[in-house]
């Protein structure tokens, strides 16, 4: 019969409509603005309303999520910072849009290069978040961040990140990427142990 197709289609949309209220009724208050509710609405079992009320609610990002690189430093006992970066320049060379600038430190006496960056810049307007710098860094010194809320009011003043703005502690890295951190630490320790053994 003519019109049956439209009616059957409308039944589908009606079902979606009802589902939202059924789910609300079932889950009660914990459906919105709670971690559990967000996870449920983003899951494969999700029914009815699907969207997340950003910025009040935020989707949890997976460990591999990548956004703008940062430089990792290890903290000493007295709070001094030891940047892992040796300014070897691999990240600057592999960077597809070429947004990394590094100035190598030279020893003031001998003039020879010292393995530490004197200056380090990333132009975050150009960075395409490909993650190559983190992937190919041999010293685990540069990693991709999880913080995607970096909007600012003045792009000329604030969108070239310098050493100070880029440096973040290893503990922060361990927090956002626990599995990667554990794996890399184990690998480094195994390497060190191998080196120490005669």
């Amino acid at each position: 019969m003519n019109g049956m197709g439209v009616l059957k289609g409308l039944a589908v949309t009606f079902r979606h409509f009802i589902d939202t209220y059924l789910e609300d009724f079932k889950a009660g208050k914990k459906r919105y603005f709670t971690e559990e509710g967000i996870r449920q609405r983003a899951s494969i079992e999700a029914k009815g309303i699907f969207s997340i009320q950003y910025p009040e609610e935020k989707l949890p990002v997976p460990e591999e999520f990548r956004y703008i690189p940062f430089l990792v430093y290890d903290e000493g006992e007295n709070g001094e910072r030891a940047l892992r970066c040796t300014s070897c320049g691999i990240c600057a060379k592999v960077c597809p849009p070429q947004c990394i600038w590094i100035v190598r430190t030279n020893d003031p006496v001998t003039g020879k290069p010292v393995p530490a960056p004197a200056e380090f810049y990333i132009d975050v307007d150009i960075c395409m978040n490909c993650g190559y710098c983190a992937e190919y860094c041999p010293f685990d010194a540069i990693k991709m961040d999880h913080n995607y809320e970096i909007a600012s009011y003045d792009r000329f003043k604030e969108h070239i990140f310098d050493l100070n703005k880029l440096s973040k502690p290893a503990s922060y890295y361990a927090k956002i990427r626990p599995a990667n951190f554990a794996r890399e630490t184990a690998e480094r320790e195994a390497k060190a142990a191998k080196k120490a053994a005669p």
Binding site: A92, C95, D123, I126
Partner: peptide
Amino acid sequence: AKPYKSRWPEGHVRRA
């Protein structure tokens, strides 16, 4: 061809 020589080791940042 990339990588550009201006980026390292004397990479004084500038905008395009």
